[in-house]
Design a protein around this nucleic acid. Structure first.
Lengths: 150, 150
DNA sequence: TTGTTACAATTGTACAAACAACTATTGACC
DNA sequence: GGTCAATAGTTGTTTGTACAATTGTAACAA
């Protein structure tokens, strides 16, 4: 669907403005799809994001700082998100022995389970969008986004 | 800056996944830039969005329904955003005469002024990203996003 | 040592988003 | 006209976000 139809705006001042708004709109669109998929699993997008990072640590400890740096949305509060995940039993926190300012964070078994189930569900949902682009086009899209950010 | 460096994730499972995450990350990046530019003008991104839509109405009445349909982020609460803008004196609300369920919404003079100043500031900020892409590339980026959404 | 600066994490707060539930009005159908 | 579904908007509640301030710890120089 063309952006113009999606937000009922007939024209843009430039192809750059159109691209800018298109990025914001498309991200919002994808976020909504993702949120819907994750809801039955009882985690928010940002919580899922953290679980994925922890899974990627392969047993090594993560810290709040590390999570903040790697999260897509840098501004969300990793400390409180971790607390939520802990309440749900998906992560554990331990004081770091070598530096007591830090807190080591690990994913639990049930965290692993939920991130895997959610990943499957999300992959399935995203499949429909994957099919709209060839691998070549997807690469090109990424390349243009990287280039735009500078 | 490459996405891999931005979020310190060395690889992705596919070019499609990389594109997906890149869209979310880039939108978050642009949103942060935009929020910063708008802060001195005392409006949020969504409030700015609404003011722009109202400006585009060129004197015609808008309704909450119309705003909701045209907003980039469909989920935000147009009713309360309008209330905020009214408190700041940027919009006025009037009961619609032909259908008393509706509320006609108009931008005020000071709303016009703020949206114009904010637009200028934003254009200036976005100029740096505009320069990273040619007009041709910006068009192509939009095209790929449209295509991906299907 | 002690003072100073840097750092990691948490917490307070104000605000905004997500979603459901609700009220009021309209339009359609019998 | 009366009933009922559809529509437009508002409000309640929970959760999440943005940002500043605070707490506790570490590193290091005088």
């Amino acid at each position: 669907m063309r952006l113009e139809d999606a937000i009922q705006q007939p024209t843009f001042r430039s192809s750059h403005e159109r691209a800018h708004i298109n990025i914001i709109y498309t991200a919002s669109f994808l976020s909504q799809q993702t949120t819907q998929v994750l809801r039955p699993h009882d985690i928010s997008m940002q919580q899922f994001n953290i679980l994925r990072i922890l899974r990627g640590m392969k047993g090594q400890a993560a810290t709040v700082k590390l999570l903040t740096e790697r999260m897509l949305d840098k501004m969300s509060n990793a400390s409180r998100l971790v607390e939520k995940l802990k309440q749900k039993g998906f992560v554990v926190r331990r004081e770091c022995e070598s530096d007591r300012r830090r807190v080591d964070i690990f994913i639990t078994e049930s965290g692993q389970a939920v991130v895997e189930k959610a990943t499957l569900a999300l992959d399935q949902k995203m499949q429909q969008f994957v099919e709209n682009l060839t691998a070549e086009e997807a690469s090109q899209l990424s390349h243009l986004l990287d280039k735009m950010r500078g």
